[in-house]
Amino acid sequence: MDFQIALLLGQDGITNGAIYALLALALVLVFAVTRVIFIPQGEYVAFGALTLAALQAGKLPGTLWLLLGMGIAVAAIDLALAVRRGTARRIPAIVGWNIVYPAALTALLWLVKPAELPLPAQVLLALAVVVPLGPMVYRLAYQPLAEASVLVLLIVSVAVHLTLVGLGLLFFGAEGSRTPAFSEGNLEIAGLTISGQTIWVVIASLALIVTLYQLFERTLYGKALRATAINRVGARLMGISTTMAGKLSFLLAAAIGAFSGILIAPITTIYYDTGFLIGLKGFVGAIIGGLASYPVAAAGAVLVGLLESFSSFYASAFKEVIVFTLIIPVLLWRSLTTRHVEEVE
């Protein structure tokens, strides 16, 4: 391999690694706050990309029907609970978020012809469809079991993953989609051509990571999420409800997932089931960080990206095998170096 190829592979690795890093951060966040191992993380990647592609093709994305349907389900459950508990003051919020918002968004997508809009507007609309699915999935699948063990929550995650993949096939069909690049230009540095989209991915990922950091360090709600992760009982006693923290972390995870999908859609063709593999690679990064450390998880995810791209050069048939085998030495090293702490409640 000469230097030129190494640079190319490195560029590829860092681009993918940046995406895996975003997903790894989302996985660490969701696990720390809710103890859910969020296998469906990848589905939000696919949904984000495919929703954008559908909007660009002038179609109403299937995820919109999912949003409408889940909104009705959530509203039905929450309204019944509100009536039974005599908390009528919550009714406007329940109806607003779960019925009015999806209906208004549907009307908007019907009226504006998203295909003719500029790209940033299309991206925003795609996010507007996919991101609310995060808290809705939390409400329907996880909230009733919030106190269950990690294993039970993992089983729920598998079920949610399979459901969402199935729905993805139903909504978007078996063919993949690719969206146009954010910018067509290329950058030439020292004889190496870097595609505009690569730069977009890396810069957008970095910007998102910095935003997340600011959110956790500076805002009260970000601090509330960290507090829930550190001491759930203490957080509840401050009035930070487990439900609110769960929904908020799922909202962020869905946003990160959908945004990642939108970023890579111009680089790789995304199919309804592509998200799973991408999510799993983020998961390897998150495991390197012990599902607890954000910086280590992000660095681990970049390492996964690099390892993947270099192994695709040397042994392309085995590239997934090599990436996922990485988890074994990592787990060994983790179990040998960390003290085992029993879960205390």
Partner: peptide, 11 residues
């Protein structure tokens, strides 16, 4: 204020 204090240790 619970017996365990339930502080956020890493904050």
């Amino acid at each position: 204020v619970p017996e365990s204090r339930a502080l956020f240790g890493e904050m």
